[in-house]
């Protein structure tokens, strides 16, 4: 190597800190792998970072996002890149580092060696460098089968999880088991859960998930949804992008909310399939709707519960589907994506 060498560790501590703070996200990360001492030096700075995302797809990918929308992603290439991941003890072949800004397509910047560390150790190391406000994970069901203990031990304290179904996969028992393992491992700790077309089973249904102490629950795709699950929801924000509830179900749901159930709920959104015999009045029946505004497309009214909380219900006729949105007054906008 023809590079000029610099005795970095001989710098006084305050200067070392100044240099480390000047470095970019990637260099700070790479420096943390130079030695245990350098790792603890970077860690001691407690550099804030907006989000860390762990993506368990065909390959493991860990992404750092800053508040300034800068992003660095580490893609850990497994030896069997087309196989199913069953353990985090495997050592990746190497890593591709992608850098850029969230608003632009990011490009591959470097390739790093595996540092002799397993996938699990990589996840733990990368999640330990910065002071993160929000750890999230995305699991593609059908691409990995990890047991609950491995998931709990190897992952940091997650704030959100998203489970999606790998195309063509998801119906078999192994996928159901995988979904259950992930949900059982993280439901007690996460705030946000997003489920996209993943297989659920009677052991762990929508009702079970809704009872967990979540802030946000977002479902998309086909699920075996029942009104009981809706009535026992213990979440602040719930969005169901599936047409499995009828206007009658929603009418009952809102009526019970008026009587005092679902007190935690601040925002709710569901799709209703509009059929020829559908009647908008079914939704309104017994709701004592006020401030009613109606045109051919939009229905808008408010209801009030026994504690005096007012909620606005708004619906727009989209042709085949009829989204019904419920929001209590003073509600601030929610981002659904994990």
């Amino acid at each position: 190597m023809t590079e000029v060498r610099f005795p970095f560790l001989s710098l006084p501590n305050d200067l070392g800190v100044k240099v480390m703070k000047t470095m970019s996200l990637y260099e700070q990360t790479a420096f943390s792998f130079a030695s245990k001492k350098s790792h603890s030096k970077i860690k001691s700075l407690r550099i804030p970072i907006a989000k860390v995302m762990i993506m368990m797809k065909g390959v493991v990918e860990i992404g750092f996002n800053t508040k300034e929308l800068e992003t660095v992603r580490f893609q850990l290439k497994s030896q069997e890149s087309d196989g199913i991941m069953t353990s985090l003890h495997d050592i990746p072949v190497n890593l591709d580092v992608y850098m850029g800004f969230l608003t632009f397509p990011i490009s591959r910047a470097f390739t790093m060696s595996n540092q002799g560390m397993s996938l699990g150790k990589w996840i733990q190391h990368l999640c330990s460098i910065f002071q993160c406000e929000d750890y999230g994970a995305v699991f593609e069901i059908g691409m990995s089968h990890l047991d609950m203990q491995t998931l709990r031990n190897m992952f940091p304290k997650l704030g959100s999880i998203r489970l999606t179904r790998f195309f063509g996969e998801g119906g078999n028992e192994l996928c159901i088991l995988n979904t259950q393992n992930i949900l059982r491992a993280f439901l007690p700790v996460v705030e946000k859960v997003q489920l996209i077309s993943v297989p659920l089973h009677e052991n762990l249904t929508f009702q079970h998930i809704g009872l967990a102490n979540l802030k946000v629950l977002y479902l998309s795709g086909r699920f075996n949804l029942k009104l009981d699950g809706l009535l026992s929801l213990n979440v602040e924000h719930c969005r169901i992008d599936t047409d499995q509830f009828t206007l009658r179900d929603l009418n009952r749901f809102f009526k019970l909310w008026m009587k005092g159930s679902n007190r935690k709920l601040k925002l709710f959104s569901a799709l209703v399939k509009w059929e020829d015999n559908s009647d908008w009045n079914i939704l309104l029946k017994g709701l004592k709707a006020e401030g009613f505004a109606e045109d051919a497309e939009v229905k808008d009214f408010t209801i009030q519960n026994s504690s005096g909380v007012i909620a606005r219900i708004r619906s727009r006729n989209m042709g085949t589907y009829f989204p019904v949105n419920f929001a209590i007054s003073n509600f601030k906008k929610e981002t659904w994506t994990v």
Partner: peptide
């Protein structure tokens, strides 16, 4: 001092952990 620190940081721009170890004379574990 700010410029100098920036220049020190620039020495390892885009480098791998092994290269950083070499350039900044960081002993291995």
């Amino acid at each position: 001092l700010t410029y100098c620190c920036k220049q020190v940081a620039m020495m390892v721009k885009g480098k791998s952990p092994e290269e950083i170890r070499e350039i900044w004379m960081i002993p291995t574990d």
